[in-house]
């Protein structure tokens, strides 16, 4: 049953077979997309018509490859930009929140921590519409009463950043907070007794200790932003992010260029995962 206990061959082999089937189930959609990205066909699915790089590089009337499709390249760029800003803001506020909840004692702490965790259990769609409702309301209010108009309060690039940040910060807080729990408080107390100010202690001792977790959290926040759809769809303005663009293409005009984009994402993520695996293995 476990490593140290002997088991019947049927049980062991049955369990292994189940695992093999599970992993096939897991990678089947990814492998399919990757292969069909190179299919010399105008339709997203089978039959296989031979190998072709058209859906990456072609620029003809019939076929517009990924790297020649300006709309698609623009949405990739929008997603990268959105991801960067969301990761930046989430990392800053999430780290501050982790420091606040781990190191300080104050009234209503439990309630505030509950609020900070709330985005984990609020459906993404609800988060999207509530931010859309209140920001457009604030926008019209400001315009009617003060005559000021803020573009970012309507569906736009910055509203997407704000919406994704609202839950990205929660994930950063949890990741950084987990590392902060392992922090030896004696180091801080030593610095304080040597007359460092509280801020100096955080900046010179706590933050350097947290650096690996902060970098990791930044990457996680970026990836969460890059793949988010449920919240983004309500906040997006005239410049769609990649998931929003892919969605409308899947619904209304699917060509194998979708396979090509997906292939690039699959390869990029797998590559990044392998690198992190190798780095982590060297450490241990």
């Amino acid at each position: 049953m476990i490593r140290t206990l002997p088991c019947s061959a049927a049980y062991t082999n049955g369990f292994r077979l189940y695992m093999v089937l599970f992993y096939i189930f897991l990678i089947m959609p990814l492998v399919t997309i990757c292969i069909l990205a190179f299919n010399d066909s105008n339709y997203i699915a089978l039959p296989w018509n031979g190998f072709s790089l058209d859906w990456f590089f072609a620029n003809t009337n019939e076929r517009l490859g990924l790297f020649k499709d300006e709309g698609l390249m623009l949405s990739v760029w929008t997603s990268l930009e959105t991801g960067f800003f969301v990761a930046l803001f989430s990392t800053i506020i999430g780290t501050i929140a982790a420091l606040l909840f781990e190191e300080e004692q104050f009234r209503m702490k439990g309630f505030l921590y509950f609020l900070a965790l709330a985005p984990l259990v609020i459906p993404g769609v609800v988060l999207g519409i509530s931010i859309l409702l209140s920001s457009t309301y604030a926008g019209t209010y400001l315009e009617e009463n003060l005559g000021m108009s803020f573009e970012f309060l309507g569906p736009s690039f910055w509203l997407v950043v704000i919406g994704q940040f609202s839950f990205g910060a929660t994930y950063v807080m949890l990741l950084v907070g987990a590392r902060l729990k392992k922090f030896d408080r004696v180091l801080e107390e030593a610095a304080l007794s040597l007359r460092a100010t509280r801020l100096e202690v955080i900046w010179l001792i706590t933050i350097p200790f947290l650096r690996p977790a902060i970098i990791g959290a930044f990457i996680v926040a970026f990836l969460i932003s890059f793949s988010n759809f449920n919240t983004t769809i309500f906040l997006v303005g005239s410049d769609p992010t990649l998931p929003v663009d892919l969605y409308s293409r899947i619904k209304f005009s699917s060509t194998p260029v979708l396979n090509a984009v997906s292939f690039m994402i699959v390869v990029f993520i797998s590559f990044a995962a392998m690198i992190s695996y190798v780095i982590n293995r060297k450490k241990t």
């Binding site: 089947m28 959609p29 997309i33 699915a45 793949s227 396979n259 997906s262 993520i269």
Partner: peptide, 15 residues
């Protein structure tokens, strides 16, 4: 997980 829902769901659509 990191590849994201949209791509994997699209993969299932093809499958």
């Amino acid at each position: 997980i990191w590849i994201g829902e949209l791509v994997t769901i699209y993969g299932w659509m093809i499958l």
